[in-house]
């Protein structure tokens, strides 16, 4: 075993390790690398384009979507605008709704619960939620979310009463969907930014319920 046969600029990094090679590269990663090489070779994209898109993607975060949700909880008129034109509502808060032509916010209520899936691939409102979780891209979620969604929700810890209509939205095409979860009770005293902190990524996919904050220890 050869240890640490290269130099590091940063002096804090002085532990021994094996050479950083691509061993056991996942098939998907190898496929993507081959595709990128081919597209670059054919002049369809440049490596800078690819890097910029990746940089953009990893710079996105569910905290942006959470700001939309929190505002909709405290401002009923904003909520109506968010439901009518989600993209315009995002611009109101100086958020970037992304290159997708249309993003649509779906409102969870006492009687209707939405959850989002993309059975064909992994369509997701990345601009407002960041990169999708791995499970969202995996076959089990993609197939079971449409065929036995209540069982899937139970596994996420969400129990829906029988009188709640479950609407599973399969985003198969150009539209991206964002769930507006219900505001938890007991949050009347919270400020908008405190409310936003309760809005998780999973709750905006529709597989979680924003948690009620536990009473602060005094």
């Amino acid at each position: 075993m050869s240890l640490h046969d290269h130099d590091h600029d940063d002096r804090d990094h002085d532990h021994p390790h094996e050479p950083l090679t691509i061993v056991g590269e996942p098939v998907a990663a190898a496929r993507v690398r081959a595709l990128v090489d081919l597209l670059v070779e054919k002049g369809v994209v440049g490596r800078d384009d690819v890097r910029q898109r990746i940089d953009w993607l990893v710079s996105r975060s569910p905290s942006d979507g959470a700001r939309l949700v929190a505002r909709s909880w405290v401002d009923p008129e904003f909520r109506q605008r968010l439901l009518a034109d989600t993209r315009a509502a995002a611009f109101e808060l100086d958020l970037d709704p992304g290159p997708s032509p249309v993003v649509i916010a779906l409102e969870n209520t006492e009687t209707v619960h939405h959850m989002v899936v993309c059975t064909l691939c992994s369509c997701y409102p990345k601009a407002l939620l960041g990169p999708p979780p791995d499970w969202y891209k995996d076959f089990p979620y993609r197939s079971r979310a449409v065929s036995e969604p209540r069982a899937v929700l139970e596994e996420f810890g969400v129990h829906l009463d029988a009188d709640v209509e479950l609407r599973v939205v399969d985003s198969t095409a150009d539209i991206r969907y964002l769930v507006i979860p219900q505001r938890p009770s007991g949050t009347e005293a919270l400020r908008e930014d405190e409310l936003a902190a309760l809005v998780t990524r999973d709750s905006m996919i529709g597989v979680a319920i924003p948690a009620v904050p536990s009473p602060a220890a005094s």
Binding site: S147, E148, V169, D170, A173
Partner: peptide, 20 residues
């Protein structure tokens, strides 16, 4: 859901929304 899946086990009111 009950139209899409013959052996649907969920609530009768549950629906699928799909862009076509």
């Amino acid at each position: 859901q009950s139209d899409v899946w013959p052996e649907h086990h969920g609530d009768a009111a549950d629906r699928l929304y799909v862009d076509v």
